[in-house]
Nucleic acid binder design. Structure first.
Length: 563
DNA sequence: GCCGTTTTCGGCCCGACTGTTTTCAGTCG
């Protein structure tokens, strides 16, 4: 699939056009086209061969031509020309929070700065404050922002690394020299941010593998570090390691390379690993250690070894336990799909229900619903439910904005008519911890609020969450029977595993939701399930493992469903 | 640059906050 690469080039064109100060609608057209390609079900190269690229929404003659060039040559003339005008480092500078296209251009024009390192230096020397329109605060914020970026650097989100790792795995599976292969390391443990892709290979002929591996198309650099270790970098900028072992060493190596370091060091302390040859499964490794099998997501030395010893490990939630999705956007607000198409996609995942939770009126940029539009949407949903042949249930919901003062964007009179109310913060991220906490506490207390959406507001690739007192909010949720969301969107995974585990301890239910804006994003649920597993959650801790009728009963809605 | 069409051109998402300024431009969601 070249879709990601093609979309990325279009996004870079959009960024460079924006730095240039080009027509905003043209810029948006490139972004829309990129988004469409990113969400395609099919390989863009195949669509192009069939002459069907123009059928993709948001792609006209101009962009279609550029896509053709990119597929043939890896780039396009228009992109190359813009790249000469605007150094690549300018696009890196856009990642600094608060620094947009205009400011980047201003700094470039005035000081000739075209990369993050020089930008930091200029801030430290107090040069940025002399750029017209920028001041001392800008300097401080840039320094702070770059520090945050550096902290994240060399880490990649699981949502990016896992698909790349799977592509690599499928490639390796084609080799007859490879006996067994697995993704290991932090990706296998489901960590939200990972530093590299680790792959374990069992082979009788490890020396012959290099020639096969080096031909994996995504590899841009590769090196045989040791006879049993190949290291390199993939085109997406992610480093990888392929660790090679003999088939008889495979299963204990699987435990060893999956880690974590702390987990394996405790497991094998004072034990000769030579005793673990010729095993048939990973479970057997743990059995020989006198322990119950420990799922990879738990292997962080956070009590799992003691629990396995005592037979007390949780029975972790699995994807098939999920029976519905309680946070989905349709084209009534900023989603792109019709409600009926989302329902069809949800059915194909084996769900029994989805809640349509579009934005509320204050979020104007996202086409937030007015009270009238919400009611109209409810009638459409009623009609769709009435036609449903199989009892699949579309729940009427809203993602209601929590306003600055803790009030909700709709009055109780409106909320009480809905099946699912998700309340979320989308504004005023910089309130102090007391105000921010109080604001969310007020929302959690509302008797019609069922779930607090993406509690901390963090975006893993861009910003840390807002200041809140998590304990106080969890306490409130426990008292008022309000659930917390694990937002499965890979850049959010909010709440994280630590808060999820704490919620469980307090008896607060968790809802794992995709927050999908496109039918393909419903599948992102899997990342949320991984986070839930890392938080030791069982099916019984999760709201959307209930049937529609049980769910509505649990939420005190009492309305009849078609279940 | 894309889209729709009773239009092959005119419209295409808005409003609050921040930081720099004294009335506004840039950024963000």
């Amino acid at each position: 699939m070249r879709n990601r690469e093609v979309a990325n080039i279009l996004l870079k064109i959009a960024d460079m056009l924006q730095i240039k100060g080009d027509n905003p609608y043209k810029i948006r057209a490139y972004r829309t086209a990129a988004e469409s390609i990113y969400h395609l079900d099919e390989d863009i190269a195949i669509l192009y061969e069939k002459g069907r690229v123009r059928e993709i929404p948001g792609i006209g003659d101009a962009v279609a031509g550029k896509i053709g060039e990119i597929l043939k040559t890896g780039s396009c003339e228009y992109y190359d020309r813009l790249s000469k005008e605007f150094p690549a480092g300018l696009l890196d500078m856009l990642v600094v929070p608060g620094l947009g296209h205009k400011s980047v251009k201003l700094i470039y024009d005035n000081l000739g700065i075209d990369n993050l390192d020089d930008l930091l230096l200029a801030c430290q020397r107090g040069e940025i404050r002399n750029v017209p329109g920028l001041g001392v605060r800008s300097e401080e914020n840039i320094i702070k922002g770059i520090a945050e970026i550096k902290q994240r650097s060399n880490k990649t989100g699981l949502g990016i690394a896992l698909p790349v790792a799977r592509d690599f795995l499928f490639y390796l599976l084609q080799s007859p020299l490879i006996n067994k292969v697995a993704i290991v390391g932090s990706i296998r443990r489901g960590k939200e941010m990972v530093s590299d892709i680790d792959i374990l290979v069992a082979s009788d002929a490890p020396a012959a593998l290099y020639d096969f591996i080096k031909d994996f198309p995504a590899i841009i650099q590769i090196e045989q570090v040791e006879p049993d270790l190949i290291r390199g970098e993939l085109g997406s900028g992610i480093e990888f390691e392929v660790i090679m072992v003999t088939p008889s060493d495979y299963f204990h190596s699987l435990v060893w390379t999956t880690g974590s370091k702390e987990h394996r060091e405790r497991l094998f302390a004072g034990i000769d690993r030579q005793d673990f040859k010729d095993l048939q499964s990973e479970t057997e490794v743990y059995t020989r250690l006198g322990l119950d099998y420990i799922a990879p997501e738990l292997r962080e030395n956070r009590g799992e070894i003691e629990a396995a010893d005592a037979g007390n490990l949780p029975k972790l939630i699995n994807f098939p336990d999920i029976r519905g999705d309680l946070h989905v956007h349709s084209n009534w607000s900023d989603g792109v799909e019709r409600i009926e198409d989302l329902a069809t996609a949800a059915r194909s995942l084996g769900y029994e229900y989805i809640a349509i939770t579009d934005h509320s009126k204050s979020l104007t940029i996202s086409g937030g619903l007015s009270e009238e539009r919400l009611q109209a949407q409810g009638k459409v949903i009623d009609a769709l439910n009435a036609q449903a042949p199989d009892g699949f249930c579309i729940l009427k919901g809203i993602e209601v904005d929590i306003l600055k003062n803790g009030e909700l964007d709709f009055p109780d009179r409106v909320l009480k008519e809905l099946d699912i109310v998700v309340a979320s913060v989308h504004s005023n991220f910089k309130l102090d911890a007391d105000q921010q906490t109080e604001r969310i506490v007020e929302a959690a207390k509302n008797e019609y609020v069922d779930i607090i959406g993406h509690l901390t507001g963090r975006l893993l690739s861009r910003r840390s969450g807002y200041e809140i007192d998590v304990d106080k909010i969890i306490d409130t949720c426990a008292c008022y029977h309000t659930a917390l969301e694990i937002n499965a969107y890979p850049d959010r995974l909010d709440i994280d595993e630590h808060i999820a585990r704490k919620a469980k301890d307090y008896g607060v239910k968790v809802a794992i939701n995709s927050d999908a804006h496109h039918r393909n994003e419903l599948k992102l649920m899997a990342y949320g399930v991984t986070t839930a597993r890392r938080g030791w959650l069982e099916a019984g801790d999760v709201l959307n493992t209930l049937s529609p009728a049980e769910l509505l009963k649990a939420l005190g809605k009492g309305a009849d469903t078609q279940d």
